[in-house]
């Protein structure tokens, strides 16, 4: 099973960190990725720039509408993601609980959905 672990925290809380605290958090995340890679559970993952760098687009009637900021104002903001390989939800919970920002904010675990097979004879 593949799961996406979405990492959320309050950017305000991060902004208020000292250089050293921010450095330490990043080092913890690097070690976490290393550990998950070594055990074969890490498929992909990235940290994200803060939501003030986000751009949201919507396509309506063929027209692309572009707005500044995230799709919705939330208390905690998406800060990164891990694509994990796990036996089942219990293992995914164990793995996700090692993600350092889980101690600051929240980590949402979502099972990956397989798209159905492509219709025959059609080109996308």
């Amino acid at each position: 099973m593949n799961y996406l672990a979405l990492v959320y925290y309050q950017e305000q809380q991060i902004d208020a960190m000292t250089e050293q605290e921010w450095h330490d958090l990043n080092q913890q995340c690097i070690r976490c990725v290393e550990g998950l890679s070594e055990s074969g559970h890490f498929l992909a993952g990235q940290a994200l720039q803060p939501t003030r760098q986000a751009t949201t687009i919507r396509v309506r009637d063929g027209e692309t509408l572009v707005t500044d900021g995230p799709f919705a104002e939330t208390k905690e903001q998406l800060a990164g993601f891990y694509l994990l390989e796990a036996r089942d939800l219990n293992e995914a919970i164990q793995l996700a609980s090692k993600i350092p920002p889980a101690q600051l904010g929240s980590v949402e675990i979502r099972p990956i959905r397989q798209l159905p097979p492509k219709d025959e004879g059609e080109s996308l």
């Binding site: 099973m1 036996r87 089942d88 939800l89 219990n90 675990i109 099972p111 959905r113």
Partner: peptide, 14 residues
């Protein structure tokens, strides 16, 4: 089914 909640007795630590 979708999130694969396993049919198991939790391990001692859990």
């Amino acid at each position: 089914k979708a999130a694969a909640i396993p049919y198991e007795i939790p391990h001692a630590n859990e």
